[in-house]
């Protein structure tokens, strides 16, 4: 996650006072895991504003059923349909859940 995005997440988390969730749209498990870790435990690369800042934000992926069900189906198909078909959905969900649920 680049430095600007980390700074924005940090700022929004402060302003929202616990009313914020993060929805990721990463196309693969590897980057999903890194982004999910960044907004929960802090930036593991120790490069950005979230280094050492465990925000513990509730993090989801746009491919998770609870997110899909909350969106307009036509819009979802238009913007996410292709990714849903091409991505390794199970593995992506496994990693985002892992960090959301604080797994070890």
């Amino acid at each position: 996650m680049d430095l600007d995005d980390q700074a924005n997440v940090n700022r929004l988390a402060e302003e929202s006072e616990g009313e914020m969730i993060v929805i990721l749209g990463q196309p693969d498990p590897n980057s999903t895991a890194l982004f999910a870790e960044t907004v929960t435990r802090g930036d593991p690369t120790w490069a950005g504003p979230l280094a050492g800042v465990p925000l513990g934000l509730p993090v989801y992926h746009v491919l998770e059923p609870e997110i899909k069900e909350s969106m307009d189906p036509e819009l979802y198909q238009e913007h996410v349909g292709l990714m849903e078909l091409s991505a390794d959905v199970d593995e992506i969900i496994k990693w985002v859940k892992y960090y959301r649920e604080g797994g070890e």
């Binding site: 996650m1 196309p27 590897n30 895991a33 890194l34 292709l82 078909l85």
Partner: peptide, 20 residues
């Protein structure tokens, strides 16, 4: 660095388009 396998992601996307 968490950027994934860029070509593989792109090829999977092309394959998904061929499916659609």
């Amino acid at each position: 660095g968490g950027s994934g396998d860029v070509p593989r992601t792109n090829y999977r996307t092309l394959a998904a388009m061929a499916v659609m």
